[in-house]
Structure formats: C-alpha cells, structure tokens
Amino acid sequence: MTALEAALAAGRAEAEALMRDTVTFYRPGEDLFDQTTGHVVPGPPLVTFYTGKARVKVDQLADSDVQAGEQEVTLRQYKVTIPFSTGLPATGQRPRPGDVIDVTASPDPRLAGVRLWVTGLQYSGTATAWRIIAEDRS
C-alpha cells in the first residue's frame, strides 16, 4: 500500500466516523392517485442508489427565497456525505440532479424526515467520501 492509499484509507475511515444520520437516496417514480383518499401519493422509487449511514449538514448558511408556482419557497443547500465505497446499483444507473435523499434518522430530531433534492454530485478518486449537493425546498 502506498502512502497515498494509506492516507486515503485513514481519511475514509474518519469521514465514515462522522456519518451519524441515516438516509435513503433514490430516483422517485411517477406519482399515483389514491382513489381511497383522493390524494396524489408518491409512487415507488425507480432506482434506489443507497440506504444507510450518512452525514447531512448545511452547506450554505444563507437561504434563498424563490417563487414556485404562486408560492414562495425557501431553498437551503446541504452537503450529504455517504461512504466512498458505495457502488452503483445493479442497473449501472448514475444519480443525477432531481433525485431525492430522505433523511430517515438523525441525532438531530429536527433533521429526521427532511426531504432533499439532489442538485449536484461530486466524483473523485482521491475523495474521502462521496459528496452530494442537495437542497431542502420547504
């Protein structure tokens, strides 16, 4: 093992030690109409990229307000970090902007249940973790 490989292995172990949240990262399917309730509900995911530990943290301290339809929406940017060893699904599909990350558990109870929309992905052979840029559109 080279010095670089040893440093990366140590860095990847440290990055994983900071992952205290749990997420599900997926491509959403088409919404479905529930005739019983009369509401539109999310359909099953088309592709699940990852389920497991992660680190979710605010990437920008400033929020931005935008108009969506006739409603004002506040966007908060987050960085979601998942283990570097995470592979692609069997289909070989790569994540893309518009995919979704649901925070399913967190030591911070205010973060659990947050839905984030992927806006960018970072790839690098010398990264210590896979970093995904996402936004909360609440």
Rank of each mutant, 00 (worst) to 15 (best):
W130K: 05
L32Q: 14
G38D: 06
G52C: 10
L46R: 15
K53A: 12
P107V: 14
V56W: 01
E70I: 10
D21K: 05
A112Q: 05
P44M: 12
T128V: 14
R76E: 00
L46K: 12
T86Y: 05
A134F: 03
T126L: 10
K79E: 01
F84P: 01
S85F: 03
V41H: 11
R115W: 06
V103G: 05
V118H: 00
V58H: 01
F33R: 08
D63F: 15
G69R: 01
S64T: 12
A127Q: 05
R12E: 03
L4S: 09
T24F: 07
G52F: 07
V40H: 10
R137M: 13
G125M: 02
K57R: 13
D59N: 00
R76I: 06
P45L: 02
T48Q: 14
F49S: 04
D59V: 03
T104I: 08
S106R: 04
V114F: 04
H39T: 14
Y78P: 00
L32G: 01
Q122E: 02
Y26K: 08
T51Y: 06
S106K: 03
Q122D: 00
P42I: 07
G92E: 01
Q35S: 09
P89T: 14
D31A: 13
T24D: 13
R94S: 05
Q67A: 12
T104R: 09
R20L: 15
P42C: 08
G38L: 12
P83Y: 06
L61W: 10
T81N: 00
A6L: 13
D21F: 04
Q71V: 15
D108F: 00
Q35L: 11
K79G: 00
P83S: 07
P42G: 10
I133K: 11
E5N: 13
V73M: 08
G87I: 08
E14Q: 14
T24A: 14
T51G: 11
T37G: 09
E16T: 07
I132V: 15
L111I: 09
T2L: 11
A15F: 03
A3T: 09
G11P: 03
L121H: 03
Q35V: 13
P28R: 10
Q60T: 13
F25K: 02
A10E: 09
R55Y: 02
D63E: 08
Q67G: 09
A68G: 07
A10L: 12
L4M: 10
D63S: 10
I101W: 04
D65H: 14
D63N: 13
G87K: 09
L121M: 12
T86Q: 00
E70H: 09
P95E: 01
I132Q: 06
V66L: 10
K79L: 05
P97V: 04
A6Y: 11
T86E: 05
Y26S: 10
